[in-house]
């Protein structure tokens, strides 16, 4: 299963929101859709879900225009909310039925998910009697109960305690292992880095960066070394201006070319008391700031 957005253009009135947005997401892998607030993530998701049409461009599934009657989509919106005055079981089965399930199958599936998320005791309670974190877990069921082919999770971890975050991670991993397309949108880079094999960074309605996360990281010039040591002073003096102290206390040494790497590494190991030396790979956070930051927006 490959989901592909191709050259999507969208304007609201005079305001152009998406310009030539294209990206691909594969089944059995998680895809991270990143971007700052207002970059066009939610609009892209809504077009992908056929809430409104794009001005031009296509949404393809395995190369053919997507057939929404056949492809199930589960969605956890960033703006959470269900019916506060309704019982959990009533509204969850309603949503599952709207997605095409029979009443019986809906109840069975909802019960499975309530059990799985440890929410069975709230089955017949009203939503507004639950804590925020628990309401979030209930909302997650609306995205998963109808066993969709594409799961879209917008900021799924916000508001969850570490135990629930762990539970959600397991659920997400399970969905990925079932071969589904899992599309993440989040500002919490650590989660994206943990799950997503490929990403797209949107900036002001355009795709600023798209591809496999490992490849992206590999593509960065391998001309910087990270050195961890108990005695940084000597190294700092010897390397002068090319050596900087990073936020975490490690040293970052800028090489004049990537070819120099082996020689400098040998020199470090032989002449100094160091704990670790490795080639610097940017974190997703660094990449995000580079592609979605103000500087990128102006460029």
């Amino acid at each position: 299963m490959i989901l592909e957005l191709k050259n999507i253009e969208k304007s609201f009135g005079e305001k152009k929101v998406l310009t030539g947005v294209s990206f691909k997401a594969e089944g059995g892998k998680a895809f991270g859709l990143l971007g700052r607030n207002g970059a066009g993530k939610t609009t892209s998701i809504r077009i992908l879900m056929d809430v409104f049409p794009a001005n031009s461009g296509e949404v393809l599934m395995d190369g053919k225009p997507i057939d929404y009657r056949k492809v199930g989509i589960g969605y956890l919106p960033e703006e959470r909310g269900l019916y506060p005055k309704k019982t959990i079981i009533d509204q969850l089965t309603y949503f599952a039925e709207l997605k095409g399930m029979s009443h019986k199958a809906a109840i069975k599936s909802v019960d499975y998910w309530l059990e799985r998320l440890g929410m069975m005791e709230y089955r017949n309670k009203r939503l507004d009697t639950l804590s925020k974190g628990n309401q979030q877990k209930i909302q997650l069921v609306t995205a998963l109960a109808h066993d969709p082919d594409i799961v879209i999770l917008d900021e799924p971890f916000s508001g969850l305690d570490p135990v629930n975050a762990m539970l959600l991670k397991d659920v997400v991993k399970e969905q990925i292992s079932k071969g589904k397309i899992v599309l993440f949108s989040s500002h919490q880079m650590s989660y994206i880095e943990e799950f997503c094999d490929s990403i797209a960074i949107l900036n002001a309605g355009k795709v600023a960066l798209h591809g496999d996360l490992h490849d992206i990281k590999r593509d960065y010039p391998r001309d910087r070394l990270v050195v961890r040591t108990e005695y940084p002073e000597q190294i700092q003096t010897d390397f002068g201006a090319s050596c900087k102290v990073m936020e975490n206390g490690a040293l970052l040494i800028q090489l004049s070319s990537p070819e120099e790497k082996k020689a400098v590494m040998t020199r470090l190991v032989e002449h100094y008391d160091i704990d670790e030396v490795k080639v610097f790979e940017p974190s997703l956070n660094d990449i995000f700031v580079e592609y979605a930051g103000d500087a990128a927006a102006e460029g």
Partner: peptide
């Protein structure tokens, strides 16, 4: 915000 899910 139940609409967010309903409309999709």
């Amino acid at each position: 915000r139940a609409m967010e899910v309903l409309i999709t």
